[in-house]
């Protein structure tokens, strides 16, 4: 009885989670349907309007070419989010394969995979991403793949331990006693239990990926101006930061807000997932 009630309570969001949820919804809306929030053209140049401070006409002000920053931030959401989601998907997809191979495979395979992951893990993630870009050349696609690759080792370690823990659980043993085969147990017990944790990881990872992709764009290795990508906008505004703060502030705010929102939601999911399991 009390357990049931505890379960209900656990799903009531905190204030921070509610705010984060709203932010994420706004970003999602901006990504899927940008013209609804900002009907203008993010690339429309108007030299007479250059460097305008935030005002009712231009909520977030304008940049050096007179482009409306609010419109660009809204339209940038789809770019940033797409890259973030894709990068996370690549990272977690790769990590799932590695994690399951290591977690369920024979001992030598586990040993090999784990050592490989550990070597990768020894590099700082961003360095790994930069290394990849050096080889493939800059660009949106390669920076996305780079971030995905760079985040995979961390995920792989978590997934491996999750797989091993689930595989050793008593209910897996109970399934063996009931005569279930190995593949059946993986498909029906281990995978679903690990995926729940993966979902949490993905949400947390999304925030991180957005920051990394923006960082790469900022360094000029991902999306390049005049593309409405947050990192690229940040880079474009940095020369004017002393006089026209809004050019860096609002794209920066968008990055921070989306990353923070994803993290808060991810932590919330993590907490609940743990108390449920």
């Amino acid at each position: 009885m009390s357990r049931v009630r505890a379960g209900v309570v656990a799903f009531r969001p905190t204030v921070a989670e509610a705010v984060a949820g709203v932010v994420l919804l706004l970003i999602l809306l901006a990504a899927l349907w940008p013209s609804l929030l900002a009907p203008g053209d993010p690339l429309a140049v108007s030299h007479t309007d250059a460097f305008q401070a935030p005002s009712p006409a231009h909520l977030f002000g304008t940049d050096e070419s007179g482009r409306d920053i609010y419109t660009r931030v809204v339209h940038g959401a789809s770019e940033s989010l797409r890259i973030g989601v894709l990068a996370t998907a690549i990272g977690i997809g790769l990590a799932t394969v590695l994690g399951f191979v290591a977690g369920l495979g024979p001992r030598w395979l586990d040993f090999g995979t784990t050592r490989f992951v550990e070597v990768l893990f020894a590099f700082p993630g961003l360095l790994l991403a930069l290394l990849f870009i050096v080889v493939t050349g800059p660009g949106v696609l390669s920076s996305t793949i780079a971030v995905g690759l760079a985040t995979a080792p961390g995920y792989a370690r978590i997934i491996r331990s999750q797989v091993r823990r689930t595989a050793a659980a008593e209910f897996v043993e109970a399934a063996r006693v009931l005569g279930r085969g190995r593949l059946w147990i993986i498909a029906r017990h281990i995978l679903p239990n690990v995926i729940a944790a993966l979902f949490v990881l993905a949400t947390l990872g999304l925030g991180q990926a957005i920051i990394w992709v923006s960082s790469l764009s900022y360094l000029g290795l991902g999306a390049v101006p005049p593309a409405a990508e947050w990192g690229a906008m940040l880079a474009a505004g940095r020369t004017y930061i002393a006089n026209f703060w809004w050019m860096t502030f609002f794209p920066g705010l968008a990055i921070v807000a989306s990353a923070a929102a994803a993290t808060v939601i991810g932590r919330g999911l993590q907490k609940r997932n743990r108390s449920a399991a």
């Binding site: 659980a169 008593e170 109970a174 449920a276």
Partner: peptide
Amino acid sequence: LLGAVFQDALSSFDPRWTVGAILADAVTRG
């Protein structure tokens, strides 16, 4: 032919499954 009942019943169930799913699985043998 051989059934087992464990000491800690709770951890012998997949926490994601309902009681109905646990028993349906046992009845249909997977």
